[in-house]
């Protein structure tokens, strides 16, 4: 490992990192490049050895693998297992990798033949139920969000580079939203999953008066029943509750169907 940067006078490891994409929009990787203001500082912390969306060179010598996307085909399972063998730290990067993301919405039909026919007609294309990485390999670290928030990614990568523990917020988005002084969206007639979704995004959507859709999955000890009560009090149907809960897959184990 090359040592180029120091932190408090101590030489800093510059870990070799690799980015990989599975079934996804590749938007989370793009968030890294979308980081014009401090992209160069970020790059001084790590050595990028694999990033197909941005570079032609590639290597299997890496310590941290950022893996975006959900797993939906057998060849992806094998590719993911290969990455797991090479990486010391495997990071599930974004909601698709953490929970299946919007891709898992196709699972709700419990009928992949219908799903294939609806899109490809009589020429069906191979697919499995969309699954998070953890279904197939051990995941060391989760970075939530659709998309991931670049400030959070930087903080996590910095902590990993420094060998510090990574602590994600356990409280819900609702707390960040209140701290940001926003009008409660329920008061202006909008449904919101903020009371039970894990914080860390700095209430990104609700700051923009757009109700939370739960892309970061549940906060610890999320009180789903209480949230349902709030939704009912504001006359939101069971169907609209389900829309929010099932959108990104993070609440899957908490849904009573």
């Amino acid at each position: 490992m090359a040592v180029t940067t120091t932190y408090l006078g101590v030489p800093l490891y510059r870990p070799k990192v690799a980015f990989f994409d599975f079934t996804s929009c590749e938007g989370c990787q793009l968030q890294v490049v979308n980081n014009e203001a401090n992209l160069l500082d970020f790059l001084s912390l790590v050595e990028v050895v694999n990033f197909r969306e941005a570079m032609t060179e590639k290597s299997n010598d890496y310590e941290i693998a950022f893996v975006e996307g959900s797993v939906t085909r057998e060849d992806e399972v094998r590719r993911l297992q290969e990455i797991r063998k090479n990486a010391k730290i495997l990071v599930a990067f974004g909601s698709c990798a953490c929970f299946g993301g919007v891709n898992q919405l196709k699972n709700r039909f419990n009928d992949l033949d219908w799903v294939k026919k609806e899109v490809y007609g009589d020429c069906p294309v191979d697919t499995k139920e969309a699954m998070p990485l953890e279904k197939y390999v051990k995941v060391d670290l989760h970075i939530y969000g659709c998309p991931v928030k670049k400030e959070e990614v930087e903080k996590i990568v910095l902590n990993v580079a420094l060998g510090k523990a990574v602590n994600l917020p356990k409280y819900p988005v609702c707390m960040e939203c209140k701290a940001n002084g926003n009008i409660c969206l329920f008061d202006i007639g909008e449904p919101c999953l903020g009371p039970i979704t894990r914080a860390g995004c700095n209430s990104w959507c609700t700051n923009n008066r757009f109700g939370c859709w739960g892309c970061r999955g549940p906060a610890e000890d999320a009180n789903v029943a209480q949230w349902q009560k709030i939704m009912r009090q504001h006359n939101f149907s069971r169907e609209r509750m389900l829309d929010r809960l099932e959108c990104f897959g993070g609440f899957d184990h908490l849904i009573e169907r």
Partner: peptide, 16 residues
């Protein structure tokens, strides 16, 4: 790998 958006949306409320 396909994601099947055109199937995902079937039955969903317009807001989605």
């Amino acid at each position: 790998t396909p994601r099947f958006f055109e199937a995902m949306l079937v039955g969903k409320h317009w807001e989605n």
